[in-house]
Amino acid sequence: MSTLSRDEVARVAALARIDLTPDELDRLAGELDVIVESVARVSEVATPDVPATSHPLPLTNVFRADVPEPSLPIADVLRSAPASEDGKFLVPQILGEE
């Protein structure tokens, strides 16, 4: 298993959209390295013949009827918005889109 370097932590933090201070980066790199090393033991027993379990109980086909329910009232929708305008959520400019 690879170790979790400071650069790797910085890359992952960017992927997770979390600003970290240089101190936080230093500390997390050390801590996470230890944790990852410890948890990586799972691969010892995770042999190819063992199926993965993603749901604790084996349910399938849980469907909802296609019947509408009323919308949340607009006042409730926008009440907690940090900013809104014209019934819409106001967000800072979005890059990466024309």
Partner: peptide
């Protein structure tokens, strides 16, 4: 290596 293995441990 990680999530996939962990789900196998779950089994």
């Amino acid at each position: 290596a990680y999530y996939g293995s962990a789900q196998k441990v779950r089994t």
